[in-house]
Amino acid sequence: MPTYNQIRAFLSQKTIGIAGAGGLGSNCAESLLRCGAGKLIVADYDRVSDSNLNRQFYFHDQIGEKKIEALRDNLLRINPFASLQMHFAKVSPENIALLYSTCDVVVEAFDEASEKLMFIEEMSLQLPLIPVVAASGLAGWGDIEKIRSIKSGNLIICGDGESEVSEDNPTLAPKVRIVSNIQADAVLEILLKELV
């Protein structure tokens, strides 16, 4: 097994894409940066709001800021030397290749199921060689044992596959952060395969 310094040196050469900077994306980015990820490419078109603070990696004094800018500030406090390419943009079939074609692996971190589907389908069409780590099913609390990762070729989907967010089944910090960290761990598994 490699040492942490070997892992960090190896990951510093890698580029990780993240699509969405909400509950999944912001927390996944934090963990990956802490592990030593050298370069992150993040796209999101939302701003930090009060209702995000129950689960997303933002702070009260950042309300109103673009998420990508607030996230860059927060990530640079962990590692001021990280290379962060932040895009204030909605990911679409038209810009997906432009945004993520240089990535070694990409994390799907959207909220809406329709956006998740679009991303997974377009990645397998336009950038089929790049592994995608997606998430589905992380609302509410409890039933943690239902969370699993399903792998199929270049695609991994993490979550319980059933707990959908709604007015009376909100997303809360523990489960969102568990799943976003399972995604981060899956990214490590994909990248570090070459190291061990």
Binding site: G23, K116, I120, S136, G137, L138, I150, I157, G159
Partner: peptide, 12 residues
């Protein structure tokens, strides 16, 4: 055959 049918549900 190896078949995967995975629900995508909202939340993130």
């Amino acid at each position: 055959d190896d078949l995967k049918i995975i629900h995508l549900v909202s939340g993130g």
